[in-house]
Design a protein around this nucleic acid. Structure first.
Length: 285
DNA sequence: AAGAATGTTACATG
DNA sequence: ACATGTAACATTCT
């Protein structure tokens, strides 16, 4: 569910709700593995009584900065959602963690599939040091992307999903970016020419910015779907050009969008705009 | 009712 | 070291 634009939208929503400066007076871990490998008691002890000094986003992580310099890192994985509600509001069965604030509200983590992970770290920069560049940072240039791809024989799709190459892309925005750049997801990274790299760099930034502008992508209608901290759905699903549009016309050329499997992930593309590489392991589905 | 699902990681095999 | 595949996590939706 949440890729960079969704996590960014959540972070903005939580900040706007005015939680910075509030003290965390109680922590309730309702699904212990949410804080694994820490134990709920040690997590709660490290966080309880601390004041929220800030909230940042790094890739798909939400970083709750505490006033003592430590931080809580939250990764929402597939179905994690954040909401701010009145403390003591009815708790539904999928709430995995709660942080009660000193102003009568609580931060709630709801996660149907239980894949989400929260952990308390003494120094957050260490915890995110292995991640690749932030694609929307000024420091992310075509040259940086080119260097990350150079010499790699991996297929573009799994490479872009690798958070060490570029941090924050997921299945939806990778498909969208490859479509915009007219690149086939099975193309080997090392075969890109400078013009391809420039197009891919621009496409990555464009699709992420569009996602943020539209408040993220909310597919389907179920409880497992993405919503912002205020429970509102995103609107970017109305602007998707290939993802979840199998069989519909390509907005650029009209050809039918196709869905294939690349590196075990559902992958959407336009068979006319995104030419299959000559010697790809074409195993279509 | 089987299969897929917005994510990541560990482990195995080339 | 690199590339790829499988399983695991756990539940819901189509």
């Amino acid at each position: 569910m949440p890729e960079l634009p969704e996590v960014e939208t959540i972070a903005r929503g939580v900040r706007r709700a005015g939680v910075i400066g509030r003290r965390i007076c109680r922590v309730d871990v309702r699904w212990p593995r949410t804080v694994a490998p820490q134990r709920p008691a040690e997590f709660a002890a490290a966080v309880t009584g601390r004041t929220l000094a800030g909230l940042r986003r790094r890739a798909k992580y939400l970083l709750w900065m505490l006033e003592d310099g430590s931080a809580v890192l939250a990764h929402l994985r597939m179905t994690g959602r954040i909401s701010l509600v009145a403390a003591g509001a009815p708790v539904d069965g999928h709430v995995r963690l709660r942080m009660t604030l000193d102003d009568g509200r609580e931060v709630r983590f709801t996660d149907t599939r239980k894949f989400g992970r929260w952990r308390h770290v003494p120094r957050w920069p260490d915890a995110v040091a292995r991640l690749g560049p932030e694609p929307l940072a000024r420091t992310f240039t075509p040259a940086i992307l080119g260097a990350a791809l150079r010499g790699r024989r991996r297929q573009l799709k799994p490479l872009l999903l690798d958070q060490r190459i570029v941090a924050g892309l997921g299945n939806i925005y990778v498909d969208e970016a490859l479509w915009q750049a007219r690149l086939h997801p099975r193309r080997r990274a090392a075969t890109l020419r400078p013009a391809d790299i420039a197009a891919l760099h621009a496409a990555i930034r464009d699709v992420l910015r569009a996602g943020i502008r539209h408040g993220g992508t909310s597919l389907g209608g179920g409880r497992t779907n993405y919503a912002g901290a205020d429970e509102r759905r995103g609107r970017h699903q109305e602007h998707l050009r290939v993802f979840a549009r199998t069989g519909k016309p390509c907005p650029r050329c009209g050809a039918g969008i196709r869905k294939i499997a690349v590196a075990q992930r559902g992958t959407h593309l336009c068979p006319r705009c995104q030419r299959a590489p000559r010697r790809s392991v074409s195993r279509e589905s």
